[in-house]
Amino acid sequence: MEHLREITEPLLQWFQLNKRDLPWRRTKDPYPIWVSEIMLQQTRVEAVKPYYERFLQTLPTVKDLAEADEETILKLWEGLGYYSRVRNMQKAAIQVMEEHNGQFPADHKMLLSLKGIGPYTAGAVGSIAFNLPVPAVDGNVLRVMSRITADASDISLQSTKKDWEERITDIMPAKSPGDFNQALMELGATVCLPNGAPKCEICPVRKYCEAYRKGATQTYPVKAEKKARTIEHLNVFFCTDRQKIAIHKRGQKGLLSGLWELPNTDREIALPAALQELGILQAEIIPMKNRKHIFTHIEWHMDCYFVKVSEKKESELLWLSIEDAETSYALPSAFKKTWQEGLEIIK
């Protein structure tokens, strides 16, 4: 542990000189810090910036988020994916308003009690906004620490993450825990890169790194192989009656639960029958470009069709003008390219 403590000072000095100028680093307000941390899960920094700015312009306070209607927050999140994150954010915002008088609690356990906030987010918000000496261990941090110590523990295991949370807590500087957490994350994001390609020549803690000393940076971190994704085959329909376009709301359980989508069915269902199920009685069906979309554990292979509807009946489809559909309803990324292709055909 004494060996690990030696990285603290050079890492903090490096961070002060080399940290990226990111909008969420210009504040100590826990609300925007929290928004950024949730957005940054599974998403690149550059992709997050415009979402972050738009979200805070529309919902500048935790009260605004707590009171927003669901379609507004889903539209603001459109394209970021993992929509359960923003739904949980709103639930947490309501908790903050109702249980904490509108103020984020400056307490680690209370932060953990908020919906959708786990150890990493509680550590990041707690240390950066409130100077709490708690770690924020993400994939970047696990990679950095695994290489520095040449630790062959499987970083996909919760036990490994827990172990590193404890070890990092022991070396965390009392005066600047937020900077230390951010420095570790920044090192992993900009220097100690994944896939065996770290920039060791500019690393501020290179002389303390066991993987570098052994010439084995490509060996660490150790991570179990992911299971193969399940492949699902769908027919996806861009349906228009010349005036309006149809969208459909998914069920409240499962993948993309409760979100709007282009109408779709299992590919095993013949096209006429599939359209009948959707309430479309007469239509011209024109093949579009087939698409593939990859989720974490599932892969969609989509046969896509432009459907000119001439006769329809009441169904679960919602028929909207193009303007209403584009400005008021969030459509998951899986359907975006087909949506754009359909609009081009209409025009």
Rank of each mutant, 00 (worst) to 15 (best):
Y52W: 13
E344K: 15
V134H: 11
T72W: 01
D151S: 09
A122N: 07
L157F: 03
R26C: 07
N195L: 12
V205F: 04
V35K: 01
V96C: 08
Y120C: 03
I148Y: 06
L331C: 06
K336C: 01
Y52F: 15
Q57T: 12
T230H: 11
L271T: 13
Q103F: 04
A68P: 07
E261M: 15
D163W: 08
I38M: 08
D107W: 05
A92Y: 10
A136D: 04
D29N: 15
C209L: 01
E46R: 13
A334I: 04
S156H: 11
W164G: 07
M288V: 01
N181R: 12
A152G: 05
Y208I: 01
V222D: 04
L271N: 01
S84F: 00
K115L: 00
E210P: 01
K336F: 12
Y120T: 10
P60W: 13
N235E: 03
I128S: 05
M1C: 06
Q42V: 04
T160V: 14
K226W: 07
L17C: 04
Y208F: 15
K109E: 14
V62N: 02
R213Y: 04
P263V: 11
Y329F: 15
C203E: 06
Y329I: 14
D151R: 12
W300L: 14
E99I: 00
R206E: 14
W34V: 06
H301C: 06
M288D: 05
K115H: 10
P198K: 12
Q243E: 15
F295V: 01
G342I: 12
F237M: 05
S328E: 12
K313G: 11
S159P: 01
K337P: 00
T27C: 04
L157V: 03
Q276M: 08
D138K: 08
G79H: 12
Q182V: 07
C209H: 01
E6N: 13
P263I: 11
E98T: 14
T296G: 05
A216M: 13
E311I: 02
T72D: 04
T338N: 02
D64F: 05
W300N: 10
K337R: 13
V48M: 11
G254H: 00
L193F: 09
I269Y: 02
A136F: 09
L331G: 07
R213N: 10
E261Y: 05
L343G: 01
T72S: 10
F306G: 02
S176A: 14
N140R: 05
L320I: 08
N140I: 09
N235Y: 11
G139S: 03
D324I: 12
G139M: 00
R5G: 13
M172E: 07
S156D: 12
K244D: 03
I286G: 00
K289G: 02
Q90S: 06
A68V: 13
E210N: 09
L317I: 09
G196A: 11
L157T: 05
S176M: 12
T58M: 07
T338A: 05
T296P: 03
N131A: 14
Q182R: 07
T149E: 14
I247R: 08
P332K: 10
I155K: 11
E341Q: 14
E186L: 10
L157R: 15
